[in-house]
Simulated assay, not measured.
Amino acid sequence: MPKLNIFVGTMYGGALDVAEQVRPLFEQEGYEVTIFEQPKLEDLTQNSADLALFCVSTTGSGDFPGNFVPFVRAFREQSPALPELRYGLIALGDSSYGETFCGAGRTLDALLEDHGATRLGERLEIDAMETFMADDEAVPWIEQWIESHQLKAA
């Protein structure tokens, strides 16, 4: 059974809600899914999975939420090579913050790419100014993502 690890960076629970709403979509396709609410770098580097999904909200001026800061700090310090990692990224933000909109997701995406990981498809950016419930955008995006990248395992 293929494995999917979902890494969550959230301040008020929106990104965690997205992770919990998309989990069954992967389980229906035959994946064993683990959600990391307090992710550690080891969860990414030592917990091998066929696929990773990052659900990350942005706080302040493009910053990572508190629960995700230790992960990013360790990532930058240890600089792991991730050539085997295939991932998707859902970034949550608020366009009223201008240039820092989805800043955490964009920064994470660049970090992963710089370390050899391969993003499948485009990053989904969800704007709180336009979408009240983030999973309203995330669920159809994940359905299309699974289909277009032939991620069905069942």
Rank of each mutant, 00 (worst) to 15 (best):
F36Y: 07
E42N: 11
F26W: 01
T10D: 04
L53F: 03
Q46M: 06
T58A: 07
G9F: 09
Y12Q: 11
G13C: 05
L44W: 11
D50P: 15
L44I: 12
G9S: 07
F54K: 01
F64P: 02
I6A: 09
Q38H: 05
G14S: 12
T45A: 06
N5F: 14
R23A: 11
G62Q: 06
S61W: 15
P39A: 02
E29Y: 13
T10W: 06
D17K: 09
T10K: 07
D17T: 09
E29V: 03
E32G: 11
P39H: 01
D50F: 15
M1F: 04
F64M: 07
L25M: 07
T58L: 08
V8F: 08
G30Y: 09
R23Y: 10
D63R: 02
L53G: 06
F36S: 01
V56T: 10
K3V: 09
N5P: 12
F54W: 01
F36A: 02
K3H: 07
P2A: 08
E29K: 13
G62L: 09
Y31S: 05
S61R: 15
T34G: 05
K40M: 14
T34K: 13
G60L: 02
T59Q: 13
V33E: 01
A19R: 07
A52G: 12
M1H: 15
R23V: 09
D43Y: 14
A15W: 09
N5G: 14
Q28R: 14
F54C: 02
L51E: 04
T10I: 14
Y31K: 01
G62S: 01
F26R: 00
E42F: 13
L41W: 13
I35C: 01
E20H: 11
E37H: 03
P65Y: 06
Q46D: 10
T59S: 15
N47R: 15
K40G: 15
D50M: 15
P65V: 00
T59F: 12
V18A: 05
Q46T: 14
P65A: 03
F26Q: 01
